[in-house]
């Protein structure tokens, strides 16, 4: 009888009520958090992006390798050849990167394109990671937590850009020289370009941008008066696999 009376505080009602309350708080926290994130993303938070001028970049000749080497030195990326290789930013032919946007024999086909993590607005890798080891920061940088990753490589399967590398072997013997200011990784975890989050947090620009001799532009896509926004407004750009809806934040001027 007592159990049927609504509102009466019985042990059963108390337990049920507390449970319900806990679940609703947890749910609303998650929902409100999501909404807040969207709002803040659109308002005062920066949203970092990179624009790469392909024609200018290819004029650098041997200097093109500088962006790759600068990143390698900054982030202790091991030099391994073959199937175990690790890449954060690397160069590939235009016809490989944009297979749908090129005809055979065009001047663009042989151009070299710097390829890196796109720091997607809708990152498929973040969605699939079973341990939240990869996550999107408030400023849009997609980060990898090397201490959280269990090495299941689901994110590698999920990435449409092949931007992620797995440490198939212990990377430490292949790092030279060692940068004491950035962690090395262990065998068995995934890593990728972090848009130099460690430098950006200190107010600096990514090393690849620094080494690009002005052919890369880094900046805040949320601010209409930033250089990157102005460049994007007055130029034709392409993004990798735009039709997938991942919303890359690495833009290529053609």
């Amino acid at each position: 009888m007592a159990g049927k009376m609504p509102g009466r505080i019985t042990r059963r009602n108390l337990v049920l009520g507390t449970g319900f309350l806990a679940i609703s708080i947890a749910l609303s926290d998650k929902l409100v958090g999501k909404a807040l994130e969207r709002f803040q993303e659109a308002s005062n938070n920066p949203r970092w992006g990179v624009v790469i001028d392909l024609v200018e970049f290819n004029r650098l000749g041997d200097g093109m390798r500088d962006v790759v080497n600068a990143c390698r030195a900054e982030h202790n990326i091991p030099v391994i050849e073959g199937k175990d290789r690790i890449e954060w930013i690397w160069l590939m032919r235009f016809s490989n990167v944009f297979p749908d946007s090129v005809v055979k024999g065009s001047v663009f086909a042989e151009m070299l394109v710097p390829v890196m993590c796109n720091h997607c607005r809708n990152p498929p890798c973040v969605k699939v990671c079973p341990t939240q080891a990869t996550f999107k920061r408030r400023d849009g940088i997609v980060q990898q937590d090397y201490h959280r990753c269990i090495g299941c490589r689901y994110c590698i399967a999920a990435c449409p850009y092949d931007a992620r590398s797995f440490n198939w072997r212990d990377p430490r013997p292949y790092i030279n020289p060692l940068n004491e200011n950035y962690p090395t990784r262990t065998v068995g975890v995934v890593e990728k370009c972090n848009l130099c989050a460690e430098r950006v947090d200190g107010g600096k620009i990514p090393v690849c941008v620094e080494a690009s001799q002005g052919t890369f532009v880094f900046g805040d896509l949320n601010r209409l008066d930033s250089e990157i926004s102005k460049v994007l407004k007055s130029n034709v750009f392409i993004r990798r696999k735009d039709h997938l809806g991942t919303e890359p934040k690495v833009y290529y001027l053609v």
Binding site: V128, P130, T131, Q132, N167, T186, G188, V189
Partner: peptide, 28 residues
């Protein structure tokens, strides 16, 4: 699944830090 993991020592993270949008979490 276990032998495929790079860091099997961290397997407990799947339940400690679950990601409710990951199909792999639900599969386990």
């Amino acid at each position: 699944v276990l032998v495929d993991l790079g860091r099997i020592d961290r397997i407990a993270y799947v339940v400690r830090y679950p990601n409710l949008t990951s199909v792999m979490f639900f599969d386990l």
